[in-house]
């Protein structure tokens, strides 16, 4: 999957789970500052990402995630793993 395809999937996850409109979700968007996610949301997001990729995420891999681009990066690593 390309980064753009993953970003597209993330946009729909953000819309369904957090009611965040897709146009505000860009690679450089900051999850906690711009999208007002909190640590509970980050856990939710990690679970959705597991469902999307079919792979398990290690909590420490997701701890350092700050931007939408970071999430895309984690998804890429999961997909090739």
């Amino acid at each position: 999957m390309t980064d753009d395809e993953i970003l597209g999937k993330l946009k729909s996850i953000f819309a369904e789970t957090f009611e965040i409109s897709p146009e505000t979700v860009k690679m450089e968007t900051h999850l906690f500052e711009d999208l007002d996610l909190d640590s509970i949301d980050a856990v939710d997001l990690a679970i959705k990402l597991q469902t999307m990729t079919g792979k398990r995420i290690k909590p420490e891999d997701f701890k350092s995630v700050r931007t939408v681009g970071d999430v895309v990066g984690v998804a890429q690593i999961l997909l090739v793993a």
Binding site: E16, T17, F18, E19, I40, D41, D44
Partner: peptide, 8 residues
Amino acid sequence: DPPAIAAR
């Protein structure tokens, strides 16, 4: 609503 939205 689903949990994350209800919490908001």
